Computed example of a mutant assay.
Amino acid sequence: MWLVFALLSAVFAALTSIFAKVGIEKVDSTLATAIRTVVVVGMSWLMVFVTNTQSGIANIGKKSWIFLILSGLATGASWLCYYKAIQIGDVSKVVPVDKLSVVITLVLAFVFLHEEFTAKSVIGCILIAAGTLLMVL
């Protein structure tokens, strides 16, 4: 089931890029990011109430709060940079560079989460990086 959600995530991320490029025409990228964020917040809380999981907020531990906040800050920084990049650059060039996050994530998961980094992972990282260079240059 995780694969279905991962594929849907990729489809929605692709649509996000296209919709955003059209939407930020003649709009400051920071303002556009703020508008997008309000929509995401609203949609997220709607899903919390639809799934009736709001009572779980009381059970969130201190460590989880810290890392969820750090994740939110990283997301905000990523979105601000991404929107500025697609506003001034071609989506077809920005998106591949943005997806280098896959390579960075694999390395960070290996270093900090002690996840397995196999020969297959290394080859995949090299291919993603090489593909990104080919698409951007």
Rank of each mutant, 00 (worst) to 15 (best):
Gly131Asn: 02
Leu31Arg: 11
Arg36Met: 07
Leu8Trp: 06
Thr118Cys: 13
Thr51His: 04
Leu80Cys: 08
Lys21Asp: 03
Gly61Asp: 15
Pro96Trp: 09
Cys81Gln: 04
Ser64Gln: 14
Ala58Asn: 10
Met1Ile: 09
Lys93Val: 12
Phe112Val: 03
Leu3Ser: 04
Trp79Gly: 01
Ile86Tyr: 01
Thr37Glu: 04
Gly124Ala: 06
Thr37Asn: 14
Ile66Thr: 11
Ala77Phe: 12
Val97Tyr: 02
Thr16Met: 12
Glu115Gly: 07
Ser101Ala: 14
Phe12Met: 10
Lys84Ile: 00
Thr33Trp: 01
Val111Leu: 15
Ile128His: 08
Leu113Ile: 09
Ile24Thr: 05
Lys21Val: 11
Lys84Val: 00
Thr16Asn: 14
Cys81Thr: 12
Glu25Leu: 12
Thr30Cys: 03
Val111Thr: 09
Val41Ala: 15
Phe5Gln: 02
Ile128Arg: 10
Val97Ser: 04
Thr37Tyr: 09
Leu68Trp: 12
Ser9Cys: 08
Leu73Ala: 10
Gly76Pro: 06
Val41Leu: 15
Gly89Phe: 00
Glu25Trp: 05
Ala6Tyr: 04
Met1Leu: 08
Val48Met: 14
Met47Tyr: 14
Val95Ser: 09
Leu133Ser: 04
Ile60Thr: 11
Thr75Gln: 07
Glu115Cys: 08
Phe110Ala: 11
Trp45Cys: 13
Lys93Ser: 08
Leu68Ser: 13
Trp45Asp: 03
Leu70Lys: 08
Val22Gln: 07
Val11Met: 14
Ile24Asn: 07
Lys63Phe: 11
Ala34Trp: 08
Met47Gly: 07
Val27Phe: 01
Leu8Arg: 04
Ala85Gln: 11
Val38Pro: 07
Ala109Asp: 15
Leu100Gly: 08
Phe5Ile: 06
Thr33His: 02
Phe67Glu: 09
Ala32Phe: 14
Val22Phe: 01
Ile126Trp: 08
Phe5Val: 03
Tyr82Gly: 00
Thr33Glu: 00
Thr118Pro: 09
Leu8Gly: 13
Val91Gln: 02
Val97Leu: 15
Ala6Gly: 10
Phe110Arg: 05
Val136His: 01
Trp79Pro: 00
Asp98Cys: 03
Phe112Ser: 03
Lys26Met: 06
Ala20Pro: 05
Lys93Pro: 03
Ala20Gln: 10
Phe5Pro: 02
Val50Thr: 10
Ala119Lys: 13
Ala77Val: 13
Ile24Tyr: 03
Ala58Pro: 03
Phe19Leu: 14
Ile66Ser: 01
Ser17Cys: 06
Thr105Gln: 11
Ala32Glu: 00
Leu133Lys: 10
Pro96Tyr: 10
Ile60Asn: 03
Pro96Arg: 10
Gly23Ser: 15
Gly124Tyr: 09
Thr132Cys: 14
Gly89Arg: 02
Trp45Arg: 04
Leu70Asn: 04
Tyr82Lys: 00
Val40Cys: 02
Val122Ser: 12
Ala32Trp: 01
Ser9Asp: 04
Ser78Leu: 14
Tyr83Gly: 00
Val11Tyr: 06
Ser101Gly: 15
Trp79Met: 12
Ile66Cys: 00
Ala119Ser: 12
Thr33Arg: 01
Met1Ala: 14
Asp90Gln: 13
Asp28Arg: 13
Lys84Asp: 00
Ile57Ala: 13
Leu7Met: 10
Ala6Gln: 01
Arg36Phe: 11
Val40Gln: 04
Asn59Gly: 12
Lys84Met: 02
Ile69Cys: 05
Val94His: 03
Lys84Thr: 02
Gly72Glu: 07
Lys120Asp: 06
Phe5Cys: 05
Phe12Ala: 12
Leu137Asn: 13
